[in-house]
């Protein structure tokens, strides 16, 4: 792989996507994440396991549906189906700032180095960088800009209200 960045470092992805859990099927082991609709249906079943759990949101899903489950989840996967589709930026901020999610928020899909600065400001801390992207320059992209004007997940106040 080699295209998974977490907390600004290339890392080993130990999560597996999982779908299609039947009521009486045996539970998979390892860290898995499931789509939101499956989570809402098989939540209790999945929580019976000891391994870690995550949920993948479509960018039209309402993150507030996970509000009561967030302390049981370690990963929320967001999708950027096209670079130009920025709905998941809002989902990320809602999860971090409003719902207080502390686990991993991961960007998947059309994740290019030029978006990383914005994604991290919205509270996304893990990235499945698109295969063709250069990893060393992607790692640098987090610090290309150091000045931020507005509050987001990383700043409570706008620039004019911060202690200088």
């Amino acid at each position: 792989m080699g295209n998974y960045i977490k907390d600004r470092k290339v890392d080993e992805d130990d999560w597996m996507p999982f779908t299609g859990l039947e009521e009486d099927a045996s539970l998979p082991s390892g860290n898995i994440y499931v789509p939101l609709d499956e989570w809402l249906k098989t939540r209790d079943h999945l929580l019976a396991r000891n391994d870690r759990l995550g949920v993948a949101l479509k960018n039209t899903d309402d993150p507030a549906l996970l509000e009561k489950d967030l302390d049981r989840l370690d990963l929320i996967v967001l999708e950027f189906p096209k670079m130009a589709d920025g709905r998941a930026f809002t989902q990320a901020r809602i999860l971090r700032e409003r719902l207080g999610f502390k686990g991993e928020i991961r960007a998947t899909g059309d994740v290019l180095q030029d978006q990383l600065f914005y994604m991290q400001r919205c509270g996304i801390n893990a990235f499945e960088i698109r295969d063709d992207q250069d990893i060393p320059s992607s790692l640098k992209a987090f610090d290309e800009m150091t000045v931020t004007y507005q509050p987001a997940s990383d700043e409570k106040f706008p620039i004019w209200r911060r202690e200088s």
Binding site: M83, F89, T90, Y118, C122, T148, Y149
Partner: peptide, 13 residues
């Protein structure tokens, strides 16, 4: 201007 410049949430509207 300051609030909207590189607003991380609203740059891919």
């Amino acid at each position: 201007r300051q609030w909207s410049t590189f607003h991380p949430e609203f740059n891919f509207l």
